[in-house]
Simulated assay, not measured.
Amino acid sequence: MKRLLVIIALFTAAATAPLPAMAQDGPPAAGRQAPLSRVLATIAARQPGRHLNTTMGEAGGRPAYFVQWQLADGRVVIFVVDAESGQIIGRQGG
């Protein structure tokens, strides 16, 4: 019975917790993220290839996308993109 009460309490807490902010279209504002679709379009315009994976983290104390991108020749590059402005701020590999 105690397990059931704990499970119910956990589900209730999860259901009432605030959802994380989602990336939105339009110009970025303080604390908002550039839409991932726009970030991927920017990378594709600069470097033909395909998107493999994206993770979130920090770069220089700011939120950042780490976009894993496969180039046309098969090499893999990780683009570091400022999550608020959508600007590419670094590149690793490739």
Rank of each mutant, 00 (worst) to 15 (best):
D25L: 11
G74W: 02
L71H: 07
T54E: 14
R46F: 02
P35F: 08
Q33D: 13
I43D: 01
R46K: 13
A83T: 08
D82T: 02
V80S: 03
A45H: 03
P35V: 14
R75W: 01
A34S: 15
A83S: 01
A17R: 01
T55H: 02
A44G: 06
V81S: 04
F66R: 03
A45M: 05
L36G: 11
D82M: 06
Q70P: 00
Q68N: 13
P27T: 00
P18K: 04
E58H: 05
E84V: 14
Q24S: 13
T55L: 03
V76N: 00
P27Y: 00
G57A: 06
R50F: 06
R62F: 01
G61C: 03
D82P: 10
R62T: 11
L71K: 09
Q70L: 07
T54H: 11
D82F: 09
Q47S: 12
A83E: 07
N53Y: 07
D25W: 03
R46C: 08
A45N: 13
P27A: 01
P20W: 08
T55N: 03
A23S: 11
T54K: 08
R75E: 10
V76A: 00
V67N: 09
D25P: 15
A17Q: 08
V80M: 08
G74A: 05
D73F: 04
Q47F: 01
W69G: 03
V67R: 09
V81T: 04
Q47T: 15
G31V: 06
G61T: 05
L71I: 04
R75V: 01
R62C: 00
A15L: 13
V76R: 05
G74Q: 09
F79A: 08
S37V: 15
A45P: 06
A72C: 00
L19A: 10
L40M: 08
A72W: 00
P35N: 02
A44R: 12
A21V: 15
A29F: 07
V67M: 10
E84S: 09
M22W: 03
V81N: 02
P18G: 00
A17M: 14
P35G: 02
Q68H: 08
M22F: 11
D73W: 02
A23D: 14
R50P: 04
A44L: 09
V67A: 06
I43A: 07
T55A: 12
A72S: 14
E58S: 08
R50T: 12
S37E: 15
A59T: 09
A30H: 13
Q68K: 12
W69V: 09
L40K: 06
S37I: 12
P28Y: 10
A64L: 04
E58G: 05
I78Q: 15
Q70K: 05
D82R: 04
A21G: 09
P48G: 10
R38L: 14
A64E: 15
S37W: 04
H51L: 01
R75D: 11
M56F: 12
A29M: 08
D25K: 03
R50L: 02
V67F: 09
M22G: 02
I78K: 04
A83K: 01
A21D: 14
A15I: 12
V77N: 00
P27M: 01
Q47G: 07
G74R: 05
Q68I: 10
A44E: 15
G26H: 05
